[in-house]
């Protein structure tokens, strides 16, 4: 790196400087917008130009968060929702990939189940909510089932398409070496589908959040989704806003967790 720096022409130095300046400008603008919005919101609320009973305000949100923290319930709610999401996400990804493998290995099964997948995929999953509640009770299990219902079918279809999209000649090459179906899968199909699986993972994180919050709306007694519904019912918009902000932060963190995982797992590809 250091002797590359020495060989940089003045033009290139200028270019790098420009790129760096642009980056700083973008970041500054981003932060400025956020700060401006928060200040505007707070000022409008303080001078009663908007009704903070309906719109809440940054200071009230902070107070609510502090209260939740003092009551000792803040992290419990976050933990409940996050663990439901993680379980839903892992189950969705693992089961989805496993089922895709089975459908890939048997074109008969793939053909048999194709219409089922299509119907299940187009069905609005929230309609299944009441069924899950009757089956699994109004608890975390139904919520995880909800998350699974949303992410599973998409995962199966994405990953199966990835498997089927592997170059025919690559498979022919393996056959010419005398590979059996399992070897072909392990050595060619799975590794060349890694980007597709990674994408499915990223989509799944988002879908799992949707499923879990939807599930919590329907049944739960704890969790961020519960806080949102409860806050809405008793007209505590402070609580609703605070929960939405927590949700945004948690979902972003988890998404970056997956990106981090991707970088660790696929460092050399």
């Amino acid at each position: 790196m250091s002797d590359m720096d020495k060989n940089i022409s003045p033009e290139h130095k200028l270019f790098l400087l420009k790129v760096k300046r642009q980056k700083i400008a973008v970041n500054t603008a981003r932060i400025a917008i956020l700060v401006a919005l928060i200040i505007l919101w707070e000022v409008l609320a303080q001078f009663r130009m908007i009704d903070s009973f309906i719109t809440s305000s940054p200071s009230r949100i902070v107070r609510t968060l502090v209260n939740l923290y003092r009551e000792g319930t803040l992290f419990r709610h976050i933990l409940v929702t996050c663990s439901e999401t993680v379980i839903g996400f892992l189950l969705g990804t693992l089961l989805g990939t496993l089922i895709a493998v089975i459908l890939w290995s048997s074109s008969f099964l793939a053909r048999v189940f194709e219409p089922y997948l299509v119907v299940l995929n187009s069905l609005p999953k929230v309609a299944l909510g009441p069924i899950f509640i009757v089956w699994a009770g109004a608890g975390p299990v139904s919520i995880i089932m909800m998350a699974l219902a949303i992410s599973l079918i998409v995962t199966i279809m994405e990953v199966l398409n990835g498997f089927l999209g592997v170059d025919r000649d690559k498979i022919k090459l393996m056959e010419a070496f005398g590979a059996n179906r399992f070897q072909t899968f392990a050595k060619v199909v799975l590794p060349s589908t890694r980007p597709v699986i990674m994408n499915a993972l990223k989509i799944n994180v988002g879908l799992s959040w949707v499923g879990v919050i939807m599930g919590e709306f329907l049944v739960s007694k704890a969790g961020i989704g519960y806080l949102i519904v409860y806050g809405g019912q008793v007209f505590k918009l402070d609580l609703v806003m605070a929960s939405v902000i927590i949700l945004g932060i948690a979902a972003t963190l988890m998404y970056h967790g997956v990106l981090f995982l991707e970088r660790i797992l696929f460092r050399n590809s």
């Binding site: 170059d167 000649d169 090459l173 010419a176 070496f177 005398g178 060349s192 890694r194 590809s269």
Partner: peptide, 18 residues
Amino acid sequence: GASLDVGYMFQKDHLFEW
């Protein structure tokens, strides 16, 4: 069945990137 005495080469090299 796949013959062990032949080797196959294609238009693309199909080297595995990973």
